[in-house]
Design a protein around this nucleic acid. Structure first.
Lengths: 250, 250
DNA sequence: CTAGTGCACTGGTCTGACCAGTAGGCTGCA
DNA sequence: TGCAGCCTACTGGTCAGACCAGTGCACTAG
Protein backbone atom coordinates (compact mmCIF):
# COMPACT_ATOMS: atom_id res chain seq x y z
CA UNK A 1 0.00 0.00 0.00
CA UNK A 2 1.05 3.57 -0.41
CA UNK A 3 2.74 3.11 -3.75
CA UNK A 4 1.84 5.26 -6.72
CA UNK A 5 -1.85 5.09 -7.49
CA UNK A 6 -2.51 4.31 -11.07
CA UNK A 7 -5.59 5.44 -12.88
CA UNK A 8 -7.46 3.25 -15.33
CA UNK A 9 -6.47 4.19 -18.83
CA UNK A 10 -9.26 4.99 -21.19
CA UNK A 11 -8.42 3.76 -24.64
CA UNK A 12 -9.03 6.61 -26.99
CA UNK A 13 -9.82 5.77 -30.55
CA UNK A 14 -7.74 7.31 -33.27
CA UNK A 15 -10.66 9.07 -34.90
CA UNK A 16 -11.55 10.67 -31.57
CA UNK A 17 -8.13 12.23 -31.34
CA UNK A 18 -8.59 13.66 -34.79
CA UNK A 19 -12.02 15.02 -33.89
CA UNK A 20 -10.56 16.65 -30.81
CA UNK A 21 -7.78 18.33 -32.71
CA UNK A 22 -9.94 19.70 -35.51
CA UNK A 23 -12.66 20.70 -33.08
CA UNK A 24 -10.13 22.58 -31.01
CA UNK A 25 -8.85 24.35 -34.10
CA UNK A 26 -12.35 25.45 -35.03
CA UNK A 27 -13.50 26.44 -31.57
CA UNK A 28 -10.34 28.34 -30.82
CA UNK A 29 -10.73 30.28 -34.03
CA UNK A 30 -7.62 28.91 -35.71
CA UNK A 31 -9.97 27.63 -38.40
CA UNK A 32 -12.63 30.14 -39.31
CA UNK A 33 -15.97 29.54 -41.01
CA UNK A 34 -15.56 29.41 -44.75
CA UNK A 35 -12.02 28.09 -44.56
CA UNK A 36 -11.24 24.64 -45.87
CA UNK A 37 -9.81 21.54 -44.30
CA UNK A 38 -7.11 19.70 -46.22
CA UNK A 39 -8.39 16.88 -48.37
CA UNK A 40 -8.96 13.51 -46.75
CA UNK A 41 -5.84 12.17 -48.42
CA UNK A 42 -3.81 15.03 -47.02
CA UNK A 43 -5.25 14.55 -43.57
CA UNK A 44 -4.35 10.87 -43.54
CA UNK A 45 -0.77 11.97 -44.03
CA UNK A 46 -0.88 14.68 -41.39
CA UNK A 47 -2.45 12.44 -38.77
CA UNK A 48 -0.64 9.27 -39.90
CA UNK A 49 -3.82 7.26 -40.09
CA UNK A 50 -5.78 5.61 -42.84
CA UNK A 51 -8.48 7.32 -44.81
CA UNK A 52 -11.24 5.31 -43.09
CA UNK A 53 -10.15 6.79 -39.78
CA UNK A 54 -10.03 10.30 -41.20
CA UNK A 55 -13.47 9.83 -42.69
CA UNK A 56 -14.97 8.60 -39.43
CA UNK A 57 -13.64 11.70 -37.73
CA UNK A 58 -15.10 13.91 -40.44
CA UNK A 59 -18.47 12.17 -40.07
CA UNK A 60 -18.51 13.06 -36.38
CA UNK A 61 -17.55 16.67 -37.06
CA UNK A 62 -20.23 16.83 -39.71
CA UNK A 63 -22.83 15.41 -37.32
CA UNK A 64 -21.89 18.17 -34.89
CA UNK A 65 -22.48 20.74 -37.59
CA UNK A 66 -18.90 21.98 -37.67
CA UNK A 67 -17.92 21.02 -41.21
CA UNK A 68 -19.51 19.96 -44.45
CA UNK A 69 -18.04 17.98 -47.29
CA UNK A 70 -19.22 17.85 -50.83
CA UNK A 71 -18.26 15.13 -53.26
CA UNK A 72 -15.86 16.30 -55.87
CA UNK A 73 -15.04 19.54 -54.14
CA UNK A 74 -11.36 20.08 -54.86
CA UNK A 75 -10.92 22.33 -51.84
CA UNK A 76 -11.67 19.88 -49.06
CA UNK A 77 -14.29 20.02 -46.34
CA UNK A 78 -15.65 23.46 -45.48
CA UNK A 79 -15.70 24.84 -41.96
CA UNK A 80 -19.23 26.01 -41.25
CA UNK A 81 -20.40 28.99 -39.25
CA UNK A 82 -22.16 27.87 -36.12
CA UNK A 83 -25.76 26.96 -36.64
CA UNK A 84 -28.19 25.65 -34.08
CA UNK A 85 -28.89 22.71 -36.37
CA UNK A 86 -27.14 20.22 -34.12
CA UNK A 87 -28.87 21.70 -31.09
CA UNK A 88 -32.13 21.44 -32.95
CA UNK A 89 -31.48 17.87 -33.89
CA UNK A 90 -30.71 16.71 -30.38
CA UNK A 91 -33.67 18.55 -28.94
CA UNK A 92 -35.95 17.05 -31.55
CA UNK A 93 -34.62 13.63 -30.68
CA UNK A 94 -35.29 14.42 -27.06
CA UNK A 95 -38.85 15.34 -27.91
CA UNK A 96 -39.31 12.04 -29.70
CA UNK A 97 -37.58 9.47 -27.53
CA UNK A 98 -37.84 11.01 -24.11
CA UNK A 99 -41.56 11.62 -24.35
CA UNK A 100 -41.20 15.36 -24.08
CA UNK A 101 -44.81 16.38 -24.04
CA UNK A 102 -46.44 19.23 -25.88
CA UNK A 103 -47.31 20.69 -22.49
CA UNK A 104 -43.69 20.85 -21.44
CA UNK A 105 -42.67 22.38 -24.75
CA UNK A 106 -45.36 25.04 -24.63
CA UNK A 107 -44.53 25.75 -21.01
CA UNK A 108 -40.92 26.24 -21.95
CA UNK A 109 -41.92 28.59 -24.73
CA UNK A 110 -44.00 30.57 -22.29
CA UNK A 111 -40.97 30.92 -20.03
CA UNK A 112 -38.66 31.94 -22.85
CA UNK A 113 -41.08 34.29 -24.56
CA UNK A 114 -42.01 36.00 -21.31
CA UNK A 115 -38.36 36.55 -20.45
CA UNK A 116 -37.61 37.80 -23.93
CA UNK A 117 -40.42 40.31 -23.66
CA UNK A 118 -39.34 41.37 -20.19
CA UNK A 119 -35.86 42.11 -21.50
CA UNK A 120 -37.07 43.55 -24.77
CA UNK A 121 -39.22 46.09 -22.96
CA UNK A 122 -36.06 47.58 -21.48
CA UNK A 123 -33.53 46.99 -24.21
CA UNK A 124 -35.41 47.33 -27.51
CA UNK A 125 -34.33 49.85 -30.10
CA UNK A 126 -36.62 51.95 -32.21
CA UNK A 127 -35.73 49.83 -35.20
CA UNK A 128 -36.76 46.65 -33.42
CA UNK A 129 -40.09 48.20 -32.47
CA UNK A 130 -40.65 48.90 -36.14
CA UNK A 131 -39.87 45.30 -37.00
CA UNK A 132 -42.50 44.20 -34.52
CA UNK A 133 -44.97 46.67 -36.00
CA UNK A 134 -44.28 45.31 -39.45
CA UNK A 135 -44.72 41.73 -38.26
CA UNK A 136 -48.12 42.48 -36.77
CA UNK A 137 -49.14 44.27 -39.94
CA UNK A 138 -48.12 41.17 -41.88
CA UNK A 139 -50.22 39.06 -39.54
CA UNK A 140 -53.24 41.22 -40.28
CA UNK A 141 -52.96 40.90 -44.03
CA UNK A 142 -52.26 37.18 -43.65
CA UNK A 143 -55.54 36.39 -41.95
CA UNK A 144 -57.19 36.04 -45.32
CA UNK A 145 -54.08 34.70 -47.06
CA UNK A 146 -53.85 31.48 -45.05
CA UNK A 147 -52.35 29.90 -42.01
CA UNK A 148 -48.83 29.49 -43.39
CA UNK A 149 -48.44 33.20 -44.04
CA UNK A 150 -49.94 34.03 -40.67
CA UNK A 151 -47.60 31.67 -38.90
CA UNK A 152 -44.60 33.11 -40.69
CA UNK A 153 -45.52 36.63 -39.60
CA UNK A 154 -46.11 35.41 -36.07
CA UNK A 155 -42.66 33.82 -36.06
CA UNK A 156 -41.17 37.07 -37.30
CA UNK A 157 -42.71 38.94 -34.39
CA UNK A 158 -41.39 36.55 -31.77
CA UNK A 159 -38.00 36.56 -33.45
CA UNK A 160 -37.84 40.32 -33.30
CA UNK A 161 -38.66 40.20 -29.60
CA UNK A 162 -36.04 37.52 -29.00
CA UNK A 163 -33.43 39.58 -30.82
CA UNK A 164 -34.39 42.62 -28.80
CA UNK A 165 -33.65 40.66 -25.63
CA UNK A 166 -30.00 40.66 -26.72
CA UNK A 167 -29.51 37.17 -25.38
CA UNK A 168 -28.38 34.73 -28.03
CA UNK A 169 -29.25 31.73 -25.91
CA UNK A 170 -32.83 32.92 -25.63
CA UNK A 171 -32.95 33.53 -29.37
CA UNK A 172 -31.62 30.09 -30.25
CA UNK A 173 -33.72 28.16 -27.76
CA UNK A 174 -36.78 30.11 -28.80
CA UNK A 175 -36.13 29.20 -32.39
CA UNK A 176 -35.48 25.53 -31.71
CA UNK A 177 -38.37 24.90 -29.36
CA UNK A 178 -40.79 26.87 -31.49
CA UNK A 179 -40.06 24.87 -34.59
CA UNK A 180 -40.65 21.66 -32.66
CA UNK A 181 -43.93 22.92 -31.29
CA UNK A 182 -45.09 24.17 -34.67
CA UNK A 183 -44.20 20.84 -36.17
CA UNK A 184 -46.47 19.18 -33.63
CA UNK A 185 -49.50 21.44 -33.88
CA UNK A 186 -49.44 23.37 -37.15
CA UNK A 187 -51.56 20.80 -38.93
CA UNK A 188 -54.19 20.93 -36.25
CA UNK A 189 -54.25 24.71 -36.20
CA UNK A 190 -54.48 24.94 -39.97
CA UNK A 191 -57.46 22.59 -39.89
CA UNK A 192 -59.26 24.26 -36.99
CA UNK A 193 -62.74 25.51 -37.93
CA UNK A 194 -62.45 28.63 -35.77
CA UNK A 195 -59.03 29.32 -37.21
CA UNK A 196 -59.83 32.84 -38.32
CA UNK A 197 -61.20 33.86 -34.91
CA UNK A 198 -58.05 32.44 -33.30
CA UNK A 199 -55.90 34.49 -35.62
CA UNK A 200 -57.77 37.70 -34.89
CA UNK A 201 -57.54 37.17 -31.17
CA UNK A 202 -53.86 36.38 -31.49
CA UNK A 203 -53.29 39.63 -33.35
CA UNK A 204 -55.05 41.55 -30.59
CA UNK A 205 -52.84 39.88 -28.03
CA UNK A 206 -49.71 40.70 -29.98
CA UNK A 207 -50.77 44.32 -30.18
CA UNK A 208 -51.17 44.46 -26.42
CA UNK A 209 -47.79 42.86 -25.87
CA UNK A 210 -46.15 45.26 -28.25
CA UNK A 211 -47.79 48.22 -26.53
CA UNK A 212 -46.30 47.08 -23.24
CA UNK A 213 -42.88 46.59 -24.81
CA UNK A 214 -43.09 50.02 -26.40
CA UNK A 215 -44.09 51.54 -23.05
CA UNK A 216 -41.13 49.84 -21.41
CA UNK A 217 -43.33 47.89 -19.02
CA UNK A 218 -41.41 44.62 -18.84
CA UNK A 219 -43.48 42.75 -16.27
CA UNK A 220 -46.69 43.59 -18.10
CA UNK A 221 -45.23 42.52 -21.44
CA UNK A 222 -44.06 39.27 -19.89
CA UNK A 223 -47.44 38.56 -18.35
CA UNK A 224 -49.33 39.32 -21.56
CA UNK A 225 -46.93 37.20 -23.58
CA UNK A 226 -47.44 34.23 -21.29
CA UNK A 227 -51.19 34.62 -21.44
CA UNK A 228 -51.17 35.02 -25.19
CA UNK A 229 -49.19 31.87 -25.75
CA UNK A 230 -51.34 29.98 -23.29
CA UNK A 231 -54.52 31.00 -25.07
CA UNK A 232 -53.09 30.15 -28.45
CA UNK A 233 -51.96 26.63 -27.60
CA UNK A 234 -54.04 25.48 -24.66
CA UNK A 235 -56.59 23.88 -26.94
CA UNK A 236 -54.01 21.44 -28.24
CA UNK A 237 -52.55 20.51 -24.86
CA UNK A 238 -54.09 17.51 -23.11
CA UNK A 239 -56.37 18.36 -20.20
CA UNK A 240 -54.11 16.86 -17.56
CA UNK A 241 -51.17 19.03 -18.57
CA UNK A 242 -53.03 22.32 -18.51
CA UNK A 243 -52.75 22.97 -14.76
CA UNK A 244 -48.96 23.04 -15.13
CA UNK A 245 -49.32 25.69 -17.82
CA UNK A 246 -51.68 27.73 -15.71
CA UNK A 247 -49.14 27.63 -12.90
CA UNK A 248 -47.14 30.11 -14.97
CA UNK A 249 -50.04 32.54 -15.22
CA UNK A 250 -50.93 35.05 -12.57
CA UNK B 1 -45.21 26.05 -68.70
CA UNK B 2 -47.77 24.06 -66.82
CA UNK B 3 -45.96 20.78 -67.09
CA UNK B 4 -45.04 18.77 -64.04
CA UNK B 5 -42.75 20.73 -61.78
CA UNK B 6 -39.67 18.80 -60.90
CA UNK B 7 -37.77 19.34 -57.72
CA UNK B 8 -34.01 19.25 -57.53
CA UNK B 9 -32.94 15.86 -56.29
CA UNK B 10 -30.74 15.82 -53.27
CA UNK B 11 -28.22 13.05 -53.54
CA UNK B 12 -28.43 11.12 -50.32
CA UNK B 13 -25.37 9.29 -49.15
CA UNK B 14 -25.70 5.65 -48.31
CA UNK B 15 -24.62 6.11 -44.71
CA UNK B 16 -27.29 8.78 -44.26
CA UNK B 17 -29.99 6.34 -45.28
CA UNK B 18 -28.68 3.92 -42.70
CA UNK B 19 -28.63 6.62 -40.03
CA UNK B 20 -32.20 7.53 -40.87
CA UNK B 21 -33.43 3.97 -40.62
CA UNK B 22 -31.74 3.16 -37.33
CA UNK B 23 -32.66 6.54 -35.90
CA UNK B 24 -36.27 5.96 -36.83
CA UNK B 25 -36.20 2.54 -35.19
CA UNK B 26 -34.86 4.03 -31.98
CA UNK B 27 -37.08 7.10 -31.87
CA UNK B 28 -40.19 5.13 -32.68
CA UNK B 29 -39.41 2.72 -29.87
CA UNK B 30 -38.86 -0.30 -32.08
CA UNK B 31 -35.37 -0.42 -30.59
CA UNK B 32 -35.35 0.24 -26.87
CA UNK B 33 -32.48 1.41 -24.71
CA UNK B 34 -30.32 -1.50 -23.65
CA UNK B 35 -31.12 -3.49 -26.76
CA UNK B 36 -28.35 -4.27 -29.21
CA UNK B 37 -27.84 -3.53 -32.84
CA UNK B 38 -26.65 -6.36 -35.05
CA UNK B 39 -22.90 -6.50 -35.51
CA UNK B 40 -21.33 -4.33 -38.17
CA UNK B 41 -20.81 -7.38 -40.35
CA UNK B 42 -24.47 -8.28 -40.03
CA UNK B 43 -25.55 -4.74 -40.80
CA UNK B 44 -23.48 -4.64 -43.98
CA UNK B 45 -25.49 -7.62 -45.11
CA UNK B 46 -28.85 -6.17 -44.11
CA UNK B 47 -28.19 -2.82 -45.76
CA UNK B 48 -26.17 -4.22 -48.66
CA UNK B 49 -23.30 -1.84 -48.13
CA UNK B 50 -19.69 -2.16 -47.14
CA UNK B 51 -18.49 -2.10 -43.60
CA UNK B 52 -16.97 1.38 -44.00
CA UNK B 53 -20.40 2.73 -44.82
CA UNK B 54 -21.98 0.97 -41.87
CA UNK B 55 -19.28 2.32 -39.62
CA UNK B 56 -19.71 5.88 -40.81
CA UNK B 57 -23.40 5.61 -40.02
CA UNK B 58 -22.64 4.23 -36.57
CA UNK B 59 -20.23 7.09 -35.93
CA UNK B 60 -22.99 9.59 -36.65
CA UNK B 61 -25.43 7.77 -34.39
CA UNK B 62 -22.79 7.66 -31.71
CA UNK B 63 -22.12 11.38 -32.06
CA UNK B 64 -25.82 11.96 -31.56
CA UNK B 65 -25.69 9.93 -28.37
CA UNK B 66 -28.06 7.24 -29.59
CA UNK B 67 -25.75 4.24 -29.54
CA UNK B 68 -22.41 3.18 -28.15
CA UNK B 69 -20.03 0.54 -29.41
CA UNK B 70 -17.31 -1.14 -27.48
CA UNK B 71 -14.45 -3.04 -29.07
CA UNK B 72 -14.74 -6.77 -28.64
CA UNK B 73 -18.34 -6.65 -27.49
CA UNK B 74 -19.91 -9.77 -28.99
CA UNK B 75 -23.42 -8.31 -28.83
CA UNK B 76 -23.05 -5.36 -31.15
CA UNK B 77 -23.62 -1.68 -30.50
CA UNK B 78 -25.85 -0.82 -27.57
CA UNK B 79 -28.85 1.46 -27.85
CA UNK B 80 -28.50 4.11 -25.17
CA UNK B 81 -31.18 5.72 -23.07
CA UNK B 82 -31.52 9.35 -24.00
CA UNK B 83 -29.02 11.58 -22.32
CA UNK B 84 -28.57 15.29 -22.81
CA UNK B 85 -24.92 14.66 -23.65
CA UNK B 86 -25.38 15.60 -27.30
CA UNK B 87 -27.39 18.65 -26.32
CA UNK B 88 -24.69 19.55 -23.87
CA UNK B 89 -22.00 19.14 -26.47
CA UNK B 90 -23.67 21.37 -29.02
CA UNK B 91 -24.46 24.02 -26.46
CA UNK B 92 -20.89 23.98 -25.23
CA UNK B 93 -19.72 24.37 -28.78
CA UNK B 94 -22.11 27.26 -29.15
CA UNK B 95 -20.66 28.89 -26.06
CA UNK B 96 -17.17 28.55 -27.48
CA UNK B 97 -17.51 29.42 -31.13
CA UNK B 98 -20.43 31.77 -31.07
CA UNK B 99 -18.98 34.07 -28.45
CA UNK B 100 -21.69 33.33 -25.92
CA UNK B 101 -20.76 35.56 -23.05
CA UNK B 102 -20.81 34.74 -19.37
CA UNK B 103 -23.42 37.47 -18.95
CA UNK B 104 -25.77 35.77 -21.39
CA UNK B 105 -25.26 32.40 -19.75
CA UNK B 106 -25.91 33.72 -16.26
CA UNK B 107 -28.92 35.63 -17.50
CA UNK B 108 -30.29 32.45 -19.00
CA UNK B 109 -29.74 30.62 -15.74
CA UNK B 110 -31.59 33.36 -13.92
CA UNK B 111 -34.53 32.90 -16.26
CA UNK B 112 -34.54 29.12 -15.94
CA UNK B 113 -33.99 29.01 -12.21
CA UNK B 114 -36.66 31.60 -11.53
CA UNK B 115 -39.18 29.69 -13.63
CA UNK B 116 -38.24 26.43 -11.98
CA UNK B 117 -38.83 27.97 -8.57
CA UNK B 118 -42.09 29.52 -9.68
CA UNK B 119 -43.34 26.13 -10.78
CA UNK B 120 -41.78 24.27 -7.88
CA UNK B 121 -43.60 26.46 -5.39
CA UNK B 122 -46.88 25.13 -6.73
CA UNK B 123 -45.99 21.61 -7.74
CA UNK B 124 -43.38 20.41 -5.23
CA UNK B 125 -43.97 17.28 -3.17
CA UNK B 126 -43.07 16.84 0.47
CA UNK B 127 -40.26 14.56 -0.57
CA UNK B 128 -38.76 17.20 -2.84
CA UNK B 129 -38.89 19.75 -0.05
CA UNK B 130 -36.89 17.34 2.05
CA UNK B 131 -34.34 16.96 -0.71
CA UNK B 132 -33.92 20.71 -0.78
CA UNK B 133 -33.56 20.79 3.00
CA UNK B 134 -30.90 18.12 2.79
CA UNK B 135 -29.04 20.01 0.07
CA UNK B 136 -28.93 23.18 2.15
CA UNK B 137 -27.75 21.19 5.14
CA UNK B 138 -24.98 19.77 2.98
CA UNK B 139 -24.06 23.29 1.89
CA UNK B 140 -23.70 24.31 5.54
CA UNK B 141 -21.35 21.50 6.41
CA UNK B 142 -19.43 22.07 3.18
CA UNK B 143 -18.47 25.65 3.99
CA UNK B 144 -15.48 24.38 5.88
CA UNK B 145 -14.95 21.34 3.67
CA UNK B 146 -14.12 23.28 0.54
CA UNK B 147 -15.56 24.80 -2.57
CA UNK B 148 -16.04 21.57 -4.50
CA UNK B 149 -18.29 20.08 -1.83
CA UNK B 150 -20.18 23.33 -1.50
CA UNK B 151 -20.71 23.55 -5.23
CA UNK B 152 -21.95 19.96 -5.37
CA UNK B 153 -24.52 20.64 -2.65
CA UNK B 154 -25.56 23.83 -4.40
CA UNK B 155 -26.06 21.88 -7.62
CA UNK B 156 -28.12 19.32 -5.73
CA UNK B 157 -30.43 22.05 -4.49
CA UNK B 158 -31.01 23.56 -7.90
CA UNK B 159 -31.52 20.11 -9.36
CA UNK B 160 -34.17 19.33 -6.79
CA UNK B 161 -35.95 22.56 -7.68
CA UNK B 162 -35.71 21.80 -11.37
CA UNK B 163 -37.15 18.33 -10.85
CA UNK B 164 -39.94 19.80 -8.77
CA UNK B 165 -40.88 22.01 -11.73
CA UNK B 166 -41.83 18.79 -13.54
CA UNK B 167 -40.56 20.16 -16.81
CA UNK B 168 -37.83 18.01 -18.34
CA UNK B 169 -36.75 20.75 -20.70
CA UNK B 170 -36.10 23.07 -17.78
CA UNK B 171 -34.20 20.32 -15.99
CA UNK B 172 -31.99 19.56 -18.95
CA UNK B 173 -31.27 23.14 -19.93
CA UNK B 174 -30.57 24.01 -16.31
CA UNK B 175 -28.11 21.17 -16.13
CA UNK B 176 -26.39 22.00 -19.39
CA UNK B 177 -26.07 25.73 -18.91
CA UNK B 178 -25.02 25.39 -15.31
CA UNK B 179 -22.16 23.08 -16.11
CA UNK B 180 -20.94 25.51 -18.75
CA UNK B 181 -21.12 28.42 -16.34
CA UNK B 182 -19.40 26.49 -13.58
CA UNK B 183 -16.71 25.51 -16.00
CA UNK B 184 -16.10 29.19 -16.70
CA UNK B 185 -16.10 30.55 -13.16
CA UNK B 186 -15.44 27.74 -10.69
CA UNK B 187 -11.72 28.40 -10.64
CA UNK B 188 -12.24 32.06 -9.89
CA UNK B 189 -14.75 31.34 -7.15
CA UNK B 190 -12.53 28.72 -5.55
CA UNK B 191 -9.70 31.26 -5.48
CA UNK B 192 -11.77 34.20 -4.21
CA UNK B 193 -10.51 35.54 -0.89
CA UNK B 194 -14.01 36.27 0.42
CA UNK B 195 -15.10 32.83 -0.63
CA UNK B 196 -16.42 31.83 2.77
CA UNK B 197 -18.53 34.97 3.15
CA UNK B 198 -19.96 34.35 -0.32
CA UNK B 199 -20.87 30.82 0.65
CA UNK B 200 -22.61 31.91 3.84
CA UNK B 201 -24.60 34.56 2.04
CA UNK B 202 -25.51 32.05 -0.64
CA UNK B 203 -26.82 29.66 2.01
CA UNK B 204 -28.96 32.41 3.50
CA UNK B 205 -30.37 33.14 0.07
CA UNK B 206 -31.14 29.50 -0.54
CA UNK B 207 -32.95 29.30 2.77
CA UNK B 208 -35.12 32.25 1.82
CA UNK B 209 -35.89 30.74 -1.56
CA UNK B 210 -36.79 27.43 0.01
CA UNK B 211 -39.05 29.13 2.52
CA UNK B 212 -40.95 30.76 -0.33
CA UNK B 213 -41.19 27.45 -2.21
CA UNK B 214 -42.43 25.75 0.94
CA UNK B 215 -45.00 28.49 1.47
CA UNK B 216 -46.19 28.06 -2.08
CA UNK B 217 -45.35 31.64 -3.00
CA UNK B 218 -44.14 31.18 -6.56
CA UNK B 219 -43.54 34.79 -7.56
CA UNK B 220 -41.56 35.44 -4.39
CA UNK B 221 -39.48 32.29 -4.87
CA UNK B 222 -38.78 33.31 -8.45
CA UNK B 223 -37.74 36.81 -7.45
CA UNK B 224 -35.48 35.60 -4.67
CA UNK B 225 -33.91 32.99 -6.93
CA UNK B 226 -33.09 35.60 -9.56
CA UNK B 227 -31.60 37.89 -6.97
CA UNK B 228 -29.61 35.09 -5.39
CA UNK B 229 -28.06 34.04 -8.64
CA UNK B 230 -27.34 37.62 -9.58
CA UNK B 231 -25.52 38.23 -6.30
CA UNK B 232 -23.55 35.02 -6.61
CA UNK B 233 -22.24 35.61 -10.12
CA UNK B 234 -22.33 39.35 -10.72
CA UNK B 235 -18.74 39.73 -9.53
CA UNK B 236 -17.51 37.61 -12.42
CA UNK B 237 -19.57 39.26 -15.13
CA UNK B 238 -17.94 42.16 -16.97
CA UNK B 239 -19.25 45.59 -15.99
CA UNK B 240 -20.86 46.30 -19.34
CA UNK B 241 -22.98 43.17 -19.21
CA UNK B 242 -24.38 43.78 -15.76
CA UNK B 243 -27.20 46.13 -16.75
CA UNK B 244 -28.71 43.35 -18.84
CA UNK B 245 -28.68 41.10 -15.79
CA UNK B 246 -30.25 43.77 -13.64
CA UNK B 247 -33.02 44.12 -16.20
CA UNK B 248 -34.31 40.79 -14.90
CA UNK B 249 -34.48 42.03 -11.33
CA UNK B 250 -37.35 44.01 -9.92
C1' DC C 1 -18.77 -27.37 -8.67
C1' DT C 2 -15.37 -24.19 -9.83
C1' DA C 3 -11.13 -22.12 -11.92
C1' DG C 4 -8.98 -21.75 -16.01
C1' DT C 5 -8.46 -22.03 -20.90
C1' DG C 6 -9.55 -21.60 -25.75
C1' DC C 7 -12.30 -20.03 -29.39
C1' DA C 8 -15.45 -17.54 -32.14
C1' DC C 9 -16.57 -13.18 -32.92
C1' DT C 10 -16.43 -8.21 -32.22
C1' DG C 11 -15.05 -3.40 -33.18
C1' DG C 12 -10.86 -0.49 -34.65
C1' DT C 13 -7.69 0.19 -38.14
C1' DC C 14 -5.23 -0.32 -42.47
C1' DT C 15 -4.47 -0.96 -47.58
C1' DG C 16 -5.77 -0.38 -52.03
C1' DA C 17 -9.07 0.18 -55.45
C1' DC C 18 -13.00 2.19 -58.39
C1' DC C 19 -16.49 5.62 -59.45
C1' DA C 20 -18.94 9.98 -60.22
C1' DG C 21 -18.55 14.66 -59.64
C1' DT C 22 -16.08 19.20 -59.55
C1' DA C 23 -12.95 23.18 -60.76
C1' DG C 24 -9.79 25.17 -63.40
C1' DG C 25 -6.72 25.15 -67.05
C1' DC C 26 -6.33 24.25 -71.98
C1' DT C 27 -7.73 24.07 -76.63
C1' DG C 28 -9.75 25.53 -80.63
C1' DC C 29 -13.12 28.10 -82.80
C1' DA C 30 -15.25 32.65 -83.95
C1' DT D 1 -8.53 38.56 -78.71
C1' DG D 2 -12.50 36.51 -76.42
C1' DC D 3 -15.11 32.84 -75.19
C1' DA D 4 -17.32 28.20 -75.32
C1' DG D 5 -16.45 23.75 -74.51
C1' DC D 6 -13.52 19.93 -73.44
C1' DC D 7 -9.73 17.53 -70.34
C1' DT D 8 -7.58 16.38 -66.57
C1' DA D 9 -6.25 16.08 -61.99
C1' DC D 10 -8.19 15.73 -57.95
C1' DT D 11 -12.04 15.21 -54.70
C1' DG D 12 -15.33 12.66 -51.68
C1' DG D 13 -18.28 8.23 -51.52
C1' DT D 14 -18.08 3.45 -51.59
C1' DC D 15 -16.37 -1.12 -51.80
C1' DA D 16 -13.46 -5.37 -50.82
C1' DG D 17 -10.44 -7.75 -48.05
C1' DA D 18 -7.22 -8.06 -44.34
C1' DC D 19 -5.11 -7.91 -39.52
C1' DC D 20 -5.22 -7.07 -34.58
C1' DA D 21 -6.51 -6.66 -29.72
C1' DG D 22 -10.13 -7.34 -26.92
C1' DT D 23 -14.53 -9.67 -25.16
C1' DG D 24 -17.93 -13.24 -23.55
C1' DC D 25 -19.05 -17.85 -23.42
C1' DA D 26 -18.68 -22.60 -23.63
C1' DC D 27 -15.93 -26.06 -22.55
C1' DT D 28 -12.51 -28.51 -19.88
C1' DA D 29 -9.62 -30.02 -16.20
C1' DG D 30 -9.11 -30.17 -11.49
Amino acid sequence: MGGPRFEPVRTVRAYERIVEQIEEAIESGALRPGERLPSERDLMGQFSVSRSTVREALRVLQARGLVRSRPGDPHGAEVLPFSPAALHKSMTTLARVDELSLGELVQFRMVLDASANLLAARLRTQEQLEEMDAAIAAMRTAVSAGYDEFSAADVAFHDAVARASRNKLIQICTDVVRSIVLNLVSEKIAAAPDREALMRRSIRHHEEVLAAVRAGDGPLAARLARQSMYDYYVGYVPEDERPALRALLD
